[in-house]
Computed example of a mutant assay.
Amino acid sequence: MRNFLSVDELIAMQTQGAPVRVIDVRWRLDRPDGYEDYRAGHLPGAVYVPLDTELSTHGRADEGRHPLPSTATLQAAARRWGIHAGDLVVAYDDAKGISAARAWWLLRQAGVEVRVLDGGLRAWTAAGHELSTDDVVPETGDVVLDEIGAGALSIDDAAAFPASGVLLDVRAAERYRGEIEPLDPQAGHIPGARSLPTLRHLDAEGKVLDVETLRTTLAEAGVTAGTPVAAYCGSGVTAAHTALVLAEAGVDAKVFPGSWSQWSNTPGRPVATGSEPG
C-alpha cells in the first residue's frame, strides 16, 4: 500500500467526491505551535492539528518529550478533525513531512487509512494552488480507533533491539556522534544503533526519493528483507518519518517514541559516541 500521495492525486480524489479529510500538522522544534502559520495559509478544508497536545502527551523528563497519547485522546482528537469511519486522512506540513509522519504513524496503528502529502505545503503552492486562511471547524466525526501502541518500543525494548535487529538513529549525524547536543542532557547515541538521518530519503524539494533509491540507502545501513528494524530520534517525531519511508520501501518498522530525550534523561543508561554503533 502506498503511503504518500501527490498533489494531483489529492485534487483528483477531492474532485471525484471521495471521503478525504486533510489535516495540517504544522510543527517544528523552533515553532511547536503552528496555529498562526496555519491561519496565515493552509490547504482549503484542512483542519489544524496541534502535535504537542493531540499527537502526544507530556509527563516526566524520563518519559521523553513526546510520549504517546492514549487511544482515547487520539480518538477524541480524530473526531474533532471530522474523521468518520471509512475516510481517507491526508496529513501534510511545511517541514518535509516530518511532523505529518507522526500523525500517519499513530493513525495507521489505529486502523485509519492515512497518507502523507508528498512535498507538503511547498508542493501545493509550487503547483500553483491557492491557500485558505479560514479556521476550519468540521462537524464532529464518529471514527472508532483501534488500540495504539503495538508499533512502539519501550526503553528496554530499544536497549535490547540491536542484538536481534537494526536500530536506526535518524537524527543528524553530528548528534549521533556526540559532537553536539542542543536539547538533551547527554550527547551520543544508544549503543548498537546505526546512523541514518531521515533527510537522506528526501530530495531538495522535500519529496520522497524513488523506492529503489530508498532500498539502496537502507541496505547500506543493514536494512534488508526480513531484518527487524526500529527507529528513534530526539523525541519520537522524526523517527516516525523514517518508519513512513521504510513502509514505502516495503519494510515494517517500529518506533521508540521516548527516543534520545527519554534515554538521555534516564539515569544508568549507557551512551556511545563516535561514528560506530559502539
Rank of each mutant, 00 (worst) to 15 (best):
S132C: 09
V136P: 00
T227W: 02
D52K: 13
T216M: 10
T224R: 14
S164L: 05
D146T: 13
E54Y: 09
H189A: 11
R194Y: 08
L51V: 11
V208L: 13
V49T: 11
R102F: 07
R80D: 03
P182G: 01
A243L: 07
E147L: 14
L167Q: 03
T217G: 10
I98Y: 06
D203Y: 09
D157N: 03
I180V: 15
T242R: 03
L199A: 14
A243N: 01
D52A: 15
T71D: 02
R108V: 00
V144A: 15
V114N: 02
V166M: 06
L68P: 02
R200C: 15
L29Q: 10
D24Q: 07
L209Y: 08
S56T: 07
A163G: 05
L121K: 14
G119M: 10
G250N: 14
A85K: 15
D203Q: 07
T238N: 04
P67F: 01
P257H: 11
E248C: 07
T227F: 02
T57P: 02
S154A: 01
D94N: 15
P270W: 07
E9W: 10
L121C: 08
A40C: 04
Y92H: 13
R171F: 11
E147C: 10
A204V: 12
L106Y: 06
A72N: 06
D252I: 10
E147G: 10
A243M: 05
A204F: 09
V49K: 00
G165F: 05
P32S: 00
K207A: 12
A85E: 15
L199V: 14
I180N: 10
A159H: 02
T125G: 03
G59P: 02
D8H: 09
